[in-house]
């Protein structure tokens, strides 16, 4: 079995936001929405710092759907619009989404973005991968692990574009995959482990 997963090297991550825009472009994510965000961890301003001057620290946290093994969003979704696919990805069937936002309430990572209105594209044409389905108002969306690309055997767009090579994508079920090895040797950890969602996105320092 294939269980896709990702590992993000926080030591290498320079918080450049390239992955965030790569994602927006690839998936035709509309105005006012992001599937992938780069947070300055714990800070109330971007590029802020923790601690007291001059003993400061700052880390960046690129955050998108964690493709949980035990996805809280999928559990609560009334129509099965959110599902876990055979590659271990958590996906949304937009045709089944009734826009109840149970999934948004359930996701501990605020990974989802809702189409509060008919998506407005800036620029106003359909940019991005043409295989990515377009969304309408009233449905929830989020990182798909670049389903369209990964289905074609390509790596996710954010992984391809990261200028620091801080993102590793691959099969968690294969102990020899680069991603599995990174998690094993560099003590990969999951976000909000206590929530029991068992993310398939790992972070390591």
């Amino acid at each position: 079995m294939t269980k896709y997963g990702m590992a993000i090297n926080k030591t290498r991550c320079i918080g450049c936001h390239t992955c965030a825009y790569a994602c927006k472009m690839q998936n035709g994510v509309a105005k006012g929405a992001r599937w992938n965000r780069v947070l300055t961890e714990g800070c109330d301003v971007e590029d802020g710092a923790l601690g007291q001057y001059p003993s400061l620290s700052r880390t960046y946290l690129p955050l998108a759907c964690q493709h949980c093994e035990n996805p809280a969003c999928q559990r609560v979704c009334p129509t099965g619009a959110t599902y876990k696919d055979e590659m271990g990805r958590v996906e949304i069937d937009y045709d089944k989404c009734i826009g109840c936002r149970m999934c948004m309430a359930a996701c501990p990572y605020n990974a989802r973005s809702f189409n509060w209105e008919e998506p407005v594209h800036q620029p106003d044409f359909v940019y991005g991968d043409k295989d990515v389905p377009q969304r309408t108002k009233g449905v929830a969306e989020k990182c798909t692990f670049c389903k369209e690309r990964t289905d074609r055997g390509e790596e996710p767009r954010c992984v391809q574009c990261c200028p620091l090579d801080a993102r590793i994508f691959g099969d968690l079920d294969d102990p020899n995959s680069e991603v599995s090895k990174a998690i094993a040797t560099r003590h990969g950890y999951q976000l909000l482990e206590e929530q029991g969602t068992r993310p398939q996105v790992y972070y390591f320092e």
């Binding site: 559990r75 609560v76 979704c77 009334p78 129509t79 099965g80 619009a81 045709d95 089944k96 989404c97 009734i98 826009g99 109840c100 936002r101 149970m102 809702f114 189409n115 509060w116 108002k137 009233g138 449905v139």
Partner: peptide, 20 residues
């Protein structure tokens, strides 16, 4: 509901785990 036009989906394909 944001997608009330699809609300029938809840009848045709209910997810029994969903409290909703």
């Amino acid at each position: 509901l944001g997608g009330i036009q699809r609300v029938w989906r809840i009848v045709t394909g209910p997810n029994p785990a969903s409290p909703l």
